[in-house]
Amino acid sequence: MTDRSGSVPLYSIAVAAQLTELPAATLRLYEEKGLVTPARTEGGTRRYSDDDIAAIRQVALLQGDGINLAGVGRVLVLQAENADLRRRLDG
């Protein structure tokens, strides 16, 4: 079995939609709002990584908790800042 980084873009939008059980239109909306940024092929086709799939699931979970997309964006920024501060303290 080959180990690979979670950041390798592998999945088309159709596959990402199946993996996250969300409509492709929702994934495009998340991208439009800056909540996820899939890679693009030379032809412009979106390619989602395992990290992107995890981020999409996180956004959907927060939305399910009643947080609007603007709030979700703020939560994600705060979580990233918190993780960065923890890395600095631990390292």
Rank of each mutant, 00 (worst) to 15 (best):
V36D: 00
E31V: 00
A60D: 05
V8H: 04
T20Y: 01
D50E: 05
L89T: 03
T2I: 15
D84R: 08
L89K: 11
R47V: 14
A14P: 05
E42C: 07
A83V: 07
S7N: 15
A83C: 10
L85K: 09
R46G: 07
V59I: 04
D52W: 00
L27H: 09
E81V: 04
V59N: 02
Y11M: 00
A39N: 05
V59L: 05
I53L: 14
V75D: 11
G34T: 02
R28T: 02
R46C: 07
S49M: 13
R87D: 06
A25R: 12
Y11R: 00
L78Q: 04
A80E: 10
R74P: 07
I67P: 08
P9G: 08
A60Y: 01
G66S: 03
I13A: 03
S7M: 15
V15M: 13
G44S: 11
T41I: 12
R46E: 12
S49P: 07
S49Y: 03
A17F: 05
R88F: 04
T45C: 10
V36G: 00
L29Y: 07
T37M: 00
P38L: 04
S12K: 11
I67W: 03
Q58H: 02
R88I: 08
A17D: 03
E31D: 10
N82K: 14
I67N: 14
D84A: 15
D3S: 10
R87A: 14
S49G: 04
